[in-house]
């Protein structure tokens, strides 16, 4: 079972650096996330009409996914994401808007992002993926459950490929690591290789 599938491609976004399959594709000294991701979005030539309406988690996930999906013809691709902070960064924003009775103006545009799976919805819209989405919460990047779950989706023919990994945004810190699992690819799909790719940035 462990050798049946392969990792085709992977990418990482963290600490001002964006890499794809181990090669640096964008770097910035910008320390603030919103400025960093905006420059990355423009430099990498990504086009999505709702980009600037999205919350930070969705911006991070969309840019990471775009690196791997922009030239991907396969549309039967499931999304299996995980993180630690869920949508807490946006949750705090919504809470601020309702905390004080005198300044009580909850925003629908903020509230809609108070769910972690919204970022998978944005990716599905941009890449026309009518496929399965699952969002798991773990206190750190964990290959174990992602590995078993991805194998299950492929074995049960729920998808031809699976885009999976980690997208976390909390207190201004960001970390995305996504990889595509398919029948063929460069690396064996195993817990060891997933962990190794996550470490080699």
């Amino acid at each position: 079972m462990a050798t049946r599938y392969h990792i085709e491609q992977y990418c990482r976004i963290t600490n001002g650096r964006i890499s794809k399959n181990g090669a640096l594709v964008f770097e910035s000294a910008e320390t603030e996330f919103s400025a960093f991701i905006k420059t990355a979005y423009k430099t990498l030539g990504i086009a999505y009409s709702k980009f600037f309406k999205m919350d930070s988690l969705s911006k991070l996930a969309l840019v990471a996914a775009d690196l791997l999906l922009v030239e991907e013809p396969e549309k039967n691709m499931a999304l299996v994401f995980s993180n630690n902070a869920s949508s807490l960064d946006t949750d705090r924003k919504h809470q601020q808007s309702i905390q004080d009775p005198d300044g009580y103006f909850p925003s629908p545009a903020v509230f809609v992002y108070t769910l972690p799976n919204i970022c998978m919805g944005e990716i599905s819209i941009k890449h026309r993926l009518f496929s399965e989405n699952s969002f798991f919460i773990n206190n750190r990047f964990l290959a174990d459950n992602l590995f078993d779950y991805t194998n299950s989706l492929l074995a049960m023919q729920k998808a031809e490929k699976v885009l999976c990994g980690w997208v976390d945004f909390d207190h201004g810190k960001y970390d995305a690591f996504l990889y595509v699992v398919a029948k063929n690819g460069t690396f064996t799909h195993s817990k060891e290789s997933i962990n190794q790719l996550y470490q080699t940035i």
Partner: peptide, 8 residues
């Protein structure tokens, strides 16, 4: 969503 935002 923008329409709702304009109401706010």
């Amino acid at each position: 969503i923008d329409a709702l935002e304009l109401i706010v």
